[in-house]
Nucleic acid binder design. Sequence first.
DNA 1: CAGCATCCGGAATGATACTG
DNA 2: CAGTATCATTCCGGATGCTG
Lengths: 125, 125
Amino acid sequence: MERLSADESWREDCAPRRVLELFATKWTSMVLHTLHARHAGCARTGVLQRSLPGISKKMLTQTLRDMEASGLLTRHVAGTVPPAVEYRLTPLGGRFVEPVEILYAWGRANADALDDLKPRPTSRR
Amino acid sequence: MERLSADESWREDCAPRRVLELFATKWTSMVLHTLHARHAGCARTGVLQRSLPGISKKMLTQTLRDMEASGLLTRHVAGTVPPAVEYRLTPLGGRFVEPVEILYAWGRANADALDDLKPRPTSRR
DNA sequence: CAGCATCCGGAATGATACTG
DNA sequence: CAGTATCATTCCGGATGCTG
């Protein structure tokens, strides 16, 4: 074996690895997918929270801020009477939707196989 | 907004979410990708460790065991003089390579954009 | 409504050393 | 070579309460 192709390695700090880090945080990909698939790439905090069963206000805010820092979305503060903040996908965020969608679809397509290995109620993390 | 498509939701315990959990563990996807791209789907422990810069023996073993439990690969113990253990991708594991490859490729394709937001030496996680 | 400040239990990762 | 056993550390993610 050892058919070293082009550069199929995993040096630390390589781009692919930074992509994986985006998935390391529990909600990132779900927020991204929801923002795109259910809200056309733009939504407010409350709406997002309602679209994501189980997420807490804290984690939602934290995730959104991290994603903003990662350049996946932008944050727009509107009026100030009742704070209205909107989050919108950036071009990078928009492109990142694609891989996420693929993962999502793969999950659905392989739901059966995944069910078999389901015996992990108190799953990791 | 609110263009609720087919079933683009994230109910807890849905298949897509269980897929994401596979990425929650740091090394899973890297082991999978390495096993496929560099070792044709079958390799021994030591070889894998040498192919994954930075992984510890402990984490490698743990990751491999988890992946075995998840049905992504099988474990074959050969002789016993010097223990020789081989890990081989299962059909499910083989199918899972596809999405992982896509993420990998996406990272390479968007390396520039990812580099811009790189100012995170002591990155998250 | 949006967000921040804290406190906290537990999980994930890692360094090191030992066994067969 | 493969794996296990400790010990230490990081920090994720949930709960709760407060601010404007």
